[in-house]
Amino acid sequence: MARLTEENVRLAREIIGRYPKPRSATIPLLHLAQEQDGHITNDAMAHIGELVGATSAEVYGTASFYEMFKFEPVGKYLINICGTMSCALMGGEELMHHAESRLGIHMGGTTSDGLFTLEKAECQAACTEAPCLQVNYRYRYRVTSENFDTLIDQLQAGELNSEIPAHGTVASVRQHIPADRGVGAVAPEDVTEGPAWLDGKAAL
């Protein structure tokens, strides 16, 4: 039940600073909160509201619209198996059945050791590599039952720790705009003129 840590508040302010209006940082900050706690807590939403100038209800309204935000703890590994057309045509449903029996849970469930949560996902933009799945948003393509079992074994053994961070972290690289290189965000109402390079002449 945590507000953002000091380090994350610093990151949050850096992210907010990139947008002409702070509210735009809402989704990135929700990701940051989920990275911190594994899921989104009420305290974090209230804190984000303070940071971006929104009420908690507004932050919750935004957060609950999006599939990736979880309001209850999920497993360390969230396994999303695609169930949309191309994957379904290529055996996605069998893969789900297999996953359910291998992990002993239903789609939507979490294993009792807290390691795995299974979810049925919508099209993952890997349709030519069907059936596919994601583990914490890292792809696995043309997954057979055997592949799936190997994957679970590897995850259980911690062999993929370097490749797949625990649930909450999506990208493990962040954008950083160096102070001396960035133009900086300006509130739209403070801009009155067209950009400098539009004077009709060559810019160089």
């Binding site: 209230a46 009420t55 209800a57």
Partner: peptide, 22 residues
């Protein structure tokens, strides 16, 4: 100017709600 209720969830599950305990 008191946005203390909001749509939450999505699609067919969309519902008007307050923030928990607010």
């Amino acid at each position: 100017g008191d946005p203390l209720i909001s749509f939450t969830q999505r699609g067919n599950n969309t519902q008007v709600m307050t923030f928990p305990d607010e």
